[in-house]
Design a protein around this nucleic acid. Structure first.
Lengths: 200, 200
DNA sequence: TGTACATCAGTGAACGCGCGTTCACTGATGTAC
DNA sequence: TGTACATCAGTGAACGCGCGTTCACTGATGTAC
């Protein structure tokens, strides 16, 4: 294997990665591999190989493989939330629908990462109301609250929130799993995820 | 390993399974394992072991592992469609919503099988309109057509169909992935998948 | 400025694992005469 | 009814594979004196 810019200098192992740089490099490579591969098919050994480092080196930065995957999922969660926030801030009155569409587009654009974020066994049990600020669940809750106004029936709020979330989540996966034709699905995102389909 | 009723008599290999019975036994065992395990974690060797047969024996009935998984998925598809049809026929005017709820309940009750059905790389590219009669996609199309009456804009029909499908598909997976609390999700199925949330 | 030393992120070798699949085989079955 | 034979669903042994992880190690770094 030929060394590239991300690889470590054989004679001086610490030079390229002191201060946790290998951790970063490994995460970056993991995210890159997720662009074309499913998380379950990614092995620590291959990530290490691609980075130009021996497999055991990774264990200096992660206790085990699942910790590594969790780091990727966390980064994915951040990016998804960021995309949604940006879309929402750029939209006028239809911010909620805009953030939903951003959710779908993120999933379609990042299949491996999107699936990893929601892979059961990694995180889970978000439950609206307990999400960290800025996360998808948090934004969902904020949006529904704003939509309903002050005196909303809390259970009805949850129903609306779940309905909206389910709509965009399901649409994303149906397209990713090729149950809905990819191009047609993309073309119809705006009509499927419309303001009235989400607020009613 | 102790032989059970599904196992083959060692002295007389053909006695238990002549006429393709091993194929059936293997599929039954696969479906049983899917009740508690994800499809990716199921190995041909373990299935064979559980059935009481050597691993190569399975290759008399399936060319390879993926053919075996496809057989499980096909059976799952049949069961899902059957559940939906039953629910729909027992419902009054709200048949569409009823079949949607049945979809969600099927997924919650059969996590491994449900996921396998939609696993990318196995089937895919259903595309409304090309589904075999009785399948989920077929029923979806029929329902939307009935709902819209005769003179429906075909593209709008597709939008409604995809919206309904996405709603129930997403709800199912959010519950399975523990993004929505399991018990709360189940309790809210009827309200989330309501007639008006699906037809509008 | 020079020296001794502790630290710790890397290394290559090795572990046990279970997998999918192939192979040459065996022996019960059903069939033709 | 008896015998020879083709069929073919099973068998156990073996293949190569890549994996996650552990191990004892090395050698560059930064620090204390």
């Amino acid at each position: 294997m030929i060394n590239n810019d991300n690889s470590v200098n054989i004679k001086n192992p610490r030079a390229a990665y002191h201060h946790g740089d290998l951790r970063t490099a490994v995460v970056v490579e993991g995210l890159r591999m997720l662009e074309t591969s499913a998380a379950e098919t990614i092995s620590l050994r291959e990530v290490a190989r691609n980075v130009g480092v021996s497999a055991p080196a990774v264990y200096r930065h992660f206790p085990d493989k699942s910790a590594f995957l969790k780091a990727l999922a966390a980064e994915g969660m951040r990016r998804l939330a960021r995309d949604q926030a940006v879309a929402q801030s750029h939209a006028g009155g239809e911010g909620f629908a805009a953030s939903g569409r951003a959710y779908v587009r993120f999933g379609i654009g990042n299949p491996g990462l999107f699936r990893l974020i929601f892979a059961s066994g990694l995180g889970g049990e978000h439950d609206l109301g307990s999400d960290p600020e800025g996360s998808a669940g948090w934004m969902l809750r904020e949006n529904v609250a704003a939509m309903m106004g002050g005196g909303a029936d809390p259970q009805q709020s949850r129903v609306l929130a779940y309905r909206a979330w389910a709509l965009v989540h399901g649409l994303t996966l149906l397209i990713l799993d090729n149950q809905i034709n990819h191009d047609e699905g993309i073309a119809l995102i705006d009509r499927i995820v419309s303001a009235d389909s989400i607020q009613k």
